[in-house]
Design a protein around this nucleic acid. Structure first.
Lengths: 216, 216
DNA sequence: AACATTGTTGACCGATCGGTCAAAACAATC
DNA sequence: GATTGTTTTGACCGATCGGTCAACAATGTT
């Protein structure tokens, strides 16, 4: 096997794996790791149970793969900010991006939520390693914004948690939200209204005077 | 059996039921309904499995009882507000009360979260009935505050969701929060700091000029 | 003391759990 | 077309699932 054969590897295998991953995400996300069964995943994927194990090795390996896939989707957020960035612009983008990611990958988001709820048995080291460092490094920059007088002197960690929680709420608690609103699902108008609200409250609440009103 | 014998009913039975409920809450909360087993609950309660079923009837009945117990704990919140109330005072109380409830009943809160995450199969009608009406009635009053110029004209529903999500985050995502902070659990100082932050951002963000600074 | 009621629990039920395995089907190479 | 390697899948394994039941202990009641 030469060095680059792995690149153009069997495409049919990839397609099947994607089918399985997608099915698994739908089964794991509402019920968590323990509440999901391989048989249910197999039914969802319309494949024999033994076939799932042939491709994924074990329930745990499949689950961990899903977690990693979801985390990769979040990598871009808040990545390229500096002390010279405009807080209003950055936080607006942050809110909208997080909101959009939740809408785009609802199952993946719920999967992640269930994992945290269960005490993060498979993500403990990621949270206290990579993610902790990520938050710490973002916090440094936000602190600089405060010192420059661009915004109030708030704890950056609580601010990040606030934006995370406020946006995630609409995917992970979608059953509650839609129940209360009396709608089947959130409309585009709802989403726009929510984004606008969150921007208004959080930016204003942090003492950020909207520099340039981005048209929406 | 006369009409009121049920009042001073067997106290030993109550004690055992509380033991079981407490054990069940600890087992259900991280794993959800499907992820929990009666055997695990029995082990936690240090009782034979058959004994659990003798007192609770079935897994489902036990689970529903836990949900109801948790919901009763929330009943007092935001209950006695009028159009003449002070928004700053009310929202401050709301934030602090919600935060306190999450700290007081972490398992119950997580249980509720897991139920919603699973699509709220046992709470659908509560959400779209009682709770929907509750939110609607609170929204009317908040709208009046806006019209009186006491606060910005924000959508009360999004405001309620914001406070719910921001406060619940610290109990339901406690594994993530503590992992990122590098602490075993949230300290009292952390909690006070978080409450202060949320008050600051949300009240200011809603255009509420803190009437009387309550000392903390 | 005799009896009825309530509480306790090990043994057991069919169903399902995650996972293994071997036989058959398929694909690729020579 | 025989050989080799890869997929596919039903059958099966021991463990565990929620729940039932009958035998038994404990606790009133009279």
């Amino acid at each position: 096997m030469t060095a680059d054969t792995a690149n153009q590897e069997n495409a049919s295998r990839d397609r099947i794996e994607q089918t399985i991953l997608s099915a698994a995400e739908q089964v794991f996300s509402p019920h968590g790791y323990r509440g999901a069964s391989l048989q249910a995943i197999a039914d969802q994927a319309k494949l024999p149970k033994a076939n799932i194990l042939y491709y994924m090795g074990s329930k745990q390996a499949l689950y961990v793969r899903l977690l990693n896939r979801m985390m990769n989707r979040w990598n871009a957020v808040l990545e390229d900010i500096t002390e010279d960035s405009d807080p209003g612009q950055v936080l607006s983008d942050f809110i909208r991006t997080k909101m959009m990611l939740g809408q785009r990958y609802p199952e993946g988001s719920k999967l992640f939520a269930a994992e945290i709820l269960a005490g993060a048995p498979f993500l403990k080291e990621y949270l206290s390693g990579e993610l902790k460092e990520w938050v710490a490094s973002r916090a440094v920059i936000i602190r600089q914004w405060s010192q420059q007088g661009k915004m109030d002197d708030v704890d950056p960690r609580w601010l990040i948690f606030l934006i995370w929680s406020a946006t995630q709420h609409y995917t992970e608690y979608s059953a509650q939200v839609t129940g209360i609103l009396g709608e089947e699902a959130l409309s585009e108008a709802d989403l726009a209204s929510i984004c606008q609200f969150l921007e208004h409250v959080i930016l204003k609440g942090c003492g950020i005077t909207s520099s340039n009103a981005t048209s929406h």
